[in-house]
């Protein structure tokens, strides 16, 4: 799979469709984001699998925003999984990136990773290699629903109490791009204390994820204290889908319902 992708990237360079490619590279026994500017560098190219599939994932789309701001004239290729593509689709809609300057090179996640992620769409549309892997419905959301009202409150209170306000969830999030973050607004959430106000801090972030979260799960991976943020945001996404018929990152031409005023209420 990797070889096919490398060939594809080389073609993009040769056809002058991109000036640089944002992907992953293994170096000194570590896998990290890397901006390839020369096809000759592609030797250490990595798909982010070190000990198990996809254990080294990074918010490449977020890095791309910074690159695009610095080099607005250049065109970038970028390595994408299903979730990365959904993130990019959202970022195009929110005018954080110019779609015309971005070429996605997509590959599917293995079934194993799709199951671990409970990912509904573990492949991108821009697939250049591999098969479309079957999507998985979340069981973790069900588990929490089955706890009952009291059980759910107890569960979330305990999990949110662990928070050390490291902002890892926000900082790694590919669709967090606000210049000023309300979570850092002292009038809304008092600063200087951990855990930050429970449950306000996390519920505010979760509500902000409505119509935005593309379910990549990097927040939960980054969380040092094991708060199941992905499950929380999965439920948020489900509600948004059932109320508004919107799944972030799936359709390019449909805007988030939280970005428009909409029609008159019926009643």
């Amino acid at each position: 799979m990797k070889e096919t992708i490398i060939e594809k990237v080389k073609d993009l360079f040769e056809d002058s469709r991109i000036e640089a490619f944002l992907g992953l590279k293994e170096e000194n026994g570590q896998i990290g984001p890397y901006l390839f500017t020369d096809p000759k560098d592609l030797e250490g190219f990595s798909l982010g699998d070190k000990e198990w599939p996809g254990d080294k994932r990074y918010p490449l789309s977020k890095i791309l925003i910074a690159l695009a701001q610095k080099y607005p004239e250049n065109r970038f290729g970028i390595l994408v999984r299903g979730c990365d593509e959904r993130a990019l689709n959202e970022l195009f809609k929110w005018n954080q990136l110019n779609e015309e300057h971005v070429v996605m090179v997509g590959f599917p996640c293995p079934q194993e990773l799709a199951e671990a992620c409970e990912c509904p769409k573990p492949y991108p549309e821009s697939l250049v290699v591999g098969e479309k892997v079957k999507g998985i419905k979340s069981k973790k959301v069900e588990v929490i629903l089955n706890m009952g009202m009291e059980g759910r409150l107890k569960y979330w209170t305990e999990r949110f109490s662990r928070c050390i306000k490291c902002y890892g969830c926000r900082n790694v999030c590919p669709v967090c791009f606000c210049n000023e973050c309300e979570l850092a607004n002292d009038d809304l959430i008092p600063s200087g204390e951990i855990p930050p106000e429970n449950p306000i801090f996390h519920l505010v972030r979760a509500a902000h994820m409505a119509g935005r979260c593309i379910d990549c799960g990097l927040c939960e991976e980054a969380c040092p204290v094991g708060i199941p943020l992905r499950t929380l945001y999965k439920k948020v996404a489900d509600i948004v889908d059932s109320e508004f018929g919107y799944r972030p990152g799936y359709q390019k031409d449909q805007k988030s319902p939280f970005n428009i005023l909409g029609e008159r209420p019926e009643d």
Partner: peptide, 13 residues
């Protein structure tokens, strides 16, 4: 309606 269901998932009536 979104908020109500969201609150319910968080364990708040």
């Amino acid at each position: 309606r979104f908020l109500k269901e969201f609150l319910s998932f968080s364990g708040i009536e």
